[in-house]
Design a protein around this nucleic acid. Structure first.
Lengths: 198, 198, 198, 198
DNA sequence: CGGTAATCGAGACGGTACGTCATGTCTTACA
DNA sequence: TGTAAGACATGACGTACCGTCTCGATTACCG
């Protein structure tokens, strides 16, 4: 960014952290559109110019702030011996985290920005979406090695079949995102809606 | 709303339509946050006060405008004789419409508002989500009567399993929302990821 | 300016006056550079946008505000029967007004802007300088008709010879702008520094 | 100022000169308010802190920079044998210098600061005003010794009568500051507007 | 058919946030 | 210690949008 030759006054890490903390706190209080940069600056005890020096837009700041908040709890999926168990141990913590606080509000706002800004969209996906998909992909790899699923299985579709319903409930809110729902999704995705051939 | 006794000058339907058209046109051009009420008023040749008389917020207007735009093409699912065929005939037009224009941009914005406004959220779901779910529900009803699926099938989960992945791709854009993808989702949702019991 | 066809909400004269009053009050308190548009807006109970709608810059506003303040006292020169008496009755009130309050501060600031903005300079002169010169010119006209001064007298030089010293003391402040000084200037300008030819 | 014991790294005279040159160059390009300390620092290849170490304000720097620029041409009034000739040889170079470049712009800005800062005002007058008045005073002294003017002549008023009109045209710009004007001012100041007693 | 009442376009209004810019101070590493 | 680089807190800038308002003009119905 700036300060390439390590010359001049170094960036204040204290200010950086205060900004992220303030932004995260405000984002959990109210909608992104209701959070003003002035408010973030004031709560962080920081100049608005300092925020804009490091984050180009409010959305970019929200992305970083939410990511920091989000990653304080980093789930660690266990190897349960079966794809079903592995998926449950991966998705249940995600669902609990996602619904534990008004994260959906921020995610929706970020998603809105991503619709019009491809660079932002990529950044968003790399932070929030891809890591989870990679974890799930590893589970499917393990299941393939175990022989649980055939080699030709379309993994990317399977990933959408699992995460899609969770995001759907998180964002649309037509029904709650419970542990029970996660189990139902995993079961139905694995076994299918139609009864297996007798 | 107003004018209960039908007294005074009646509401101009011409103005109403011009506003909806202008809003729709602008929403397909740019993000909701980039569309100002002044711009809508100017494009519609209408006073800002006239807009606010009939729509409380920009989001409410966007909801109506998108709905009008969205419903110009109303898919009509055929009875294909099988749940698989029915679902394809229901979901494929939806996916085509959803990805035919930058509707995702508007939907994401409406969804963002819905996160903080329960009344708006209900309105949004009643317009865009529930009708589709009702249609799908009818297909499942038909399948149950046909004996394709058992009586205890959790329909709501199944609905999320089908629409969730579609919304997921529409909103996250990590991969395109193609006919092929719709088919893969339907197949995998119906048959399951795991191979059926031999 | 705007509102050519008398359409739309008419300009609030109340707001206009409140802005001018607030600006004048602040300008008498502190330097123009210390007066912020926010402060004027707040003191006037008015939106900043309303100020900018009618005045392009802070300096233009200051010009209007000072002019209103300045013109509350409008001196009326009497015909005293002699050029000397006429000039005294014209210049003494000017000097008293100019030094009665910190007008020099504002005038210097306006003058500074005028140095870089020809349009503003013209406006400034038309408001503050030309009317006074016109008044003085009339006195000289009367004196010519009386036969006090010859026909070929360079009036414009004479005007500078009278107003120049007054502005000089007002702006440079190397000595006070007293009634006594005005009398001395008038006397010396009329009679000359050198003793008349015996 | 600082560095009384001559300890540590000595002040860079090179930096000092570069700062003054940069400031002078920028001040001749645009108004003082348009000249930022950052711009001066950058043009001088110097740190902003270095400027502030030696000059408390932008105005103080401008004062020094203009003074250096101004004094590159230092007029040397000749003894012409008459007060009229002496004054012309003093004032004509001043007027030429003053109108040769946009010095009026800087002078007006300094004058504006002087209105609110008595210390700065004194400094300004000691640099730009008093030396010229002292020179003129000497001419009047010579004229008194020659018997050209009576002993009781109010010299300070006479000085204002001469410099006042010049500053007036320089700052107000209602008419150009030509050699012709200087001659007219000297003539009219010496001889008076009224015809001498026959 | 004239009065009443709600609508309309136009556009000014108070308010709030925006993103930028300049000021003057500071913190580092180097000279 | 002086310096260049540059980050920092502060605070004003001028713009844009929001949602409300005040006009005069229009258009129905109702008496």
């Amino acid at each position: 960014m700036t300060n390439e030759g390590n010359r001049g006054r170094p960036r204040s890490q204290q200010a950086r952290q205060a900004i992220l903390d303030a932004a995260a706190a405000l984002l959990l209080e109210r909608a992104l559109s209701e959070v003003s940069m002035d408010a973030v600056a004031q709560r962080a005890g920081v100049s608005k110019a300092t925020i804009y020096r490091w984050w180009p837009t409010k959305e970019a700041l929200a992305l970083d702030a939410l990511y920091a908040e989000w990653n304080t709890v980093r789930p660690f999926p266990r190897d349960t011996g079966s794809l079903r168990g592995d998926l449950l141990s991966l998705l249940r913590p995600w669902a609990r985290l996602a619904s534990s606080r008004p994260y959906g509000r921020v995610l929706a706002a970020l998603l809105t920005t991503a619709q019009s800004d491809p660079v932002f969209a990529t950044e968003y996906r790399q932070r929030f979406v891809e890591p989870r998909r990679d974890q799930a992909r590893a589970l499917f790899q393990r299941a393939t090695e175990r022989g649980e699923i055939p080699a030709g299985t379309k993994i990317d579709v399977a990933l959408d079949l699992l995460y899609g319903p969770l995001y759907h409930r998180l964002l649309h809110g037509h029904a709650p995102l419970t542990d029970r729902f996660v189990r139902d999704v995993v079961d139905m995705a694995l076994d299918g809606i139609l009864p297996g051939p007798a």
